[in-house]
Amino acid sequence: MAGGALWVVSLTVAGFAFGNITWVNDNLTAVIMGIIVLSLVPGIVAWLQERHRAKAGA
């Protein structure tokens, strides 16, 4: 429960802090798209590595 509470509080504080930055507020769509792209990168890298390993082993 403590971890969940810390997660909620930390994300709320981070959202408040970043929401008060003028550039972030003016470019919210770009910031959200950047977060989405960054969260997809590890999966894409893992997929490419596995694909490369499969070709090398074949």
Rank of each mutant, 00 (worst) to 15 (best):
W7I: 00
I21W: 04
A14P: 09
G4C: 06
W7L: 13
P42H: 04
M1C: 03
K55G: 02
S10P: 06
T29H: 07
N27I: 03
D26H: 08
W23A: 15
D26M: 04
A54W: 13
L28R: 01
V8T: 05
T12L: 13
M1Y: 00
L38A: 14
G15Q: 03
V41C: 01
I35W: 10
R53G: 06
W23M: 12
A56S: 12
V31T: 09
V8N: 03
V37E: 06
L40C: 07
V24M: 05
G3Y: 14
A46Y: 03
F16Q: 15
L40D: 01
S39W: 07
V31C: 03
L28N: 00
G19T: 10
P42D: 02
L40Q: 01
V8R: 12
V9S: 03
M1P: 09
V37F: 15
L48T: 12
N20A: 07
A5S: 04
I32F: 09
D26I: 01
A2T: 13
V9L: 11
V31E: 06
L40K: 04
D26G: 09
W7A: 06
W7F: 11
V9E: 09
V8P: 00
T22V: 15
A17D: 05
V13S: 02
D26A: 14
T22N: 13
V13F: 09
M1T: 11
I35M: 10
A14D: 04
G43C: 04
H52C: 11
I36V: 13
G43D: 05
A30Q: 05
A14I: 15
G15C: 06
I36R: 14
V13R: 03
K55P: 06
R51G: 10
G15H: 00
V13M: 09
L48M: 13
E50T: 12
D26S: 10
A2P: 09
I44Y: 01
T22M: 08
A14L: 14
F18R: 01
V24R: 00
E50Q: 08
L6E: 15
P42A: 01
G15N: 07
M1R: 00
F16A: 14
V9W: 04
I36P: 10
R53K: 15
M1A: 11
G3F: 07
F18L: 14
W47V: 12
L38F: 11
G43V: 11
Q49E: 02
A30C: 01
R53C: 07
A46N: 08
V31P: 07
